[in-house]
Design a protein around this nucleic acid. Structure first.
Lengths: 204, 204
DNA sequence: GTCTATAACCTGATAGAC
DNA sequence: GTCTATCAGGTTATAGAC
């Protein structure tokens, strides 16, 4: 029974390739990534990529799916919770995103730019739109502020929360902010954004 | 004197190529763009690109320079104006950006993602950082709110203003918003953002 | 499963005719 | 200045040995 258990170090070849692919795709984007880069990053041979994943395209779609799920995974459990107030929902969204992006800062810029570069790859996502539009969150928003389109508030919340991470490559290249200082500001924002969004919600 | 004047239709071959390059680079990013795409878009031959611009890289750098200047061109004239209040500056930034991006919506996502994909191309920009940090705008911000890092407010202003345009490819692919409706919301935001940012500035 | 070697294709760039 | 034809190099994917 204990014969061939061997603790899977999740360093299986397949996982090694996926990890390398995450890193290289995120850094350079799909088009600029060569399969050789991924193989080298994984310390493996090029042929293995095709053995495990058939093609560069298929491997990318796998990684991309992961990323999109991570990005929407923050929203999904919050939007339709009947037991939380509108204000609490917005706070949760801000805090959860900042916590996530502190670990994976390039997530939103990666997903958004790949969608832009190749919208064809994102055909049948129409459902997501309806899902958000019919959410309890949006209903609460409309009830509280029937005078404005709910997207005005959603864009402001997400803008304040996600934009710093999207613009981070610029901050870095411009040398205006170090890694540590940035993380500190983001930690602060977890309290600031809910406060500020509440001001906006109440303003008439 | 009126011999060979001929109204330059700015349809010179060189300009045709640049226009096509703007379009294709913006749509697909540097790496995914083939010089053949640009030539075809311009209705011209591939060899002309190299005749006029030496290489794909040189042509791209030209376009990129234009785009970066457009993006920072909104900030530059506002930041060091001694005759405008902090509040007025923020209003101008929001309004000018929305007006600009209504015409060139993909500008910020293009610039940010290319910087991310190839930070090496943006080496000696350190000056820009200092220029912003020493601006009158930042001084006014620190004086008004010495309790918080000025970037907390700048990120919020730019996030609220730029994020809708950055996330637009997603909105489109998700089918949540039409072109016309989007433009209407942005027009509304020109009044909303200054109002909201003022609330944030005053909050203690 | 993993490797080397190579096929098949594509891309940026140029030579040379007009 | 503009075109066609082509080269040189790089890229994905696969065949086949181990």
């Amino acid at each position: 029974m204990a014969k061939k258990i061997k603790i899977e170090q999740d360093t299986s070849t397949e996982e090694k390739i996926k990890e390398a692919a995450r890193k290289v795709f995120s850094k350079k984007g799909y088009a600029a990534t060569r399969t050789r880069d991924i193989a080298e990053e994984a310390g493996l041979n090029l042929a293995l990529l095709n053995y495990y994943f058939r093609s560069k395209e298929k491997l990318f779609e796998l990684i991309m799916m992961e990323k999109v799920q991570k990005l929407f995974g923050v929203l999904a459990p919050v939007l339709n919770n009947k037991n939380t107030s509108l204000e609490k929902k917005m706070e949760l969204i801000a805090i959860n995103y900042i916590d996530l992006l502190t670990v994976i800062p390039d997530l939103p810029l990666f997903v958004l730019s790949e969608i832009r570069n190749n919208p064809a790859r994102f055909g049948e996502k129409m459902q997501v739109g309806k899902l958000i539009q019919n959410s309890i969150f949006v209903k609460q928003l409309i009830k509280k502020r029937p005078d404005l389109h709910p997207l005005q508030f959603i864009m402001s919340l997400l803008g304040m929360t996600l934009f710093p991470f999207i613009a981070r490559p610029l901050f870095n290249s411009v040398g205006v902010l170090g890694q540590k200082e940035f993380d500190l500001l983001m930690e602060q924002r977890k309290a600031l954004i809910p406060k500020w969004i509440n001001l906006i919600l109440k303003s008439k």
